[in-house]
């Protein structure tokens, strides 16, 4: 796991993040090492407050680690000045948040085209790409709606479309279903499965078992450290009929 393979998209070595000093010192993330392969969907699960979100922020360069390194597509993120990090974020990363974080006064379509505009795409190109992405997440008919006119599940799908706007190397999702009800979660699961099938690399932090179950690999985190890793891909389950109680 410590060896960086050629297909590795993201590689974190010995990541640590501490807040405060002395007695108030909080070790949010402790010596986390993680490799994510291209096309892999990795879920990090654990109780709330275990440092999952901080880890995601470190991986996305939104916070600087106290120690350790993060390499995204081969470039060392933790040492870069923020301007360069921003360029990397723009090109290689897509973020999805629990609170959606859509811009209130922009329509769904305008929200989705925002990253492309920030990356310097032509307005026409950005619009075309945004329309395509909205259609992919099944919201072509909601393009001109404001976020306030969309349901939670629809807002999160817009946010996912936005995360994909620049065809990122990696999508980082922080509790994407945290604010959603069960049926909206199902919509989102479908989208996650589609993403996965298309080969999008995703790291998702969650305590929703259903999202975790879509992963190829599941990492359990407790008190800021990784405690267990389970490979779900290729695993065999009991037949469905047995789970349903049809078989003895």
């Amino acid at each position: 796991m410590t060896v960086e393979s050629e297909t590795s998209v993201l590689s974190a070595q010995g990541l640590c993040k501490e807040y405060g000093k002395g007695a108030a010192l909080v070790r949010a993330v402790q010596a986390v090492t993680l490799e994510v392969e291209r096309g892999e969907l990795v879920a990090v699960v654990g109780p709330s407050g275990c440092g999952k979100s901080t880890l995601l922020h470190l991986l996305g360069g939104l916070e600087r680690p106290t120690a350790g390194s993060v390499r995204l597509g081969g470039s060392a993120l933790e040492r870069m000045p923020e301007a360069q990090q921003a360029r990397i974020r723009r090109r290689d990363l897509g973020f999805v948040f629990q609170a959606f974080h859509l811009v209130d006064e922009l329509t769904a379509l305008e929200n989705v085209e925002l990253p492309a505009l920030l990356a310097g795409a032509s307005p026409r190109g950005a619009r075309a790409r945004a329309s395509e992405l909205l259609a992919q997440v099944g919201l072509a008919d909601r393009a001109s709606h404001l976020p306030s006119a969309l349901s939670g599940g629809q807002q999160q799908r817009v946010a996912i479309a936005r995360a994909l706007a620049n065809e990122p190397l990696l999508v980082l999702a922080d509790e994407p279903t945290g604010n959603l009800d069960s049926s909206a979660t199902t919509e989102l699961l479908r989208l996650f499965e589609q993403l996965h099938a298309r080969g999008q690399t995703v790291v998702v932090v969650t305590h929703d078992e259903r999202i975790a179950a879509t992963a190829d690999r599941l990492i359990s985190m407790r008190d800021g450290a990784f405690v267990d890793e389970t490979k779900l891909a290729g695993g065999t389950a009991r037949p469905l009929s047995a789970m349903a109680g049809l078989e003895a």
Partner: peptide
């Protein structure tokens, strides 16, 4: 949000 989406601090 703009920074998450890749705007630099200078921008």
């Amino acid at each position: 949000l703009a920074r998450v989406l890749g705007a630099t601090p200078r921008q």
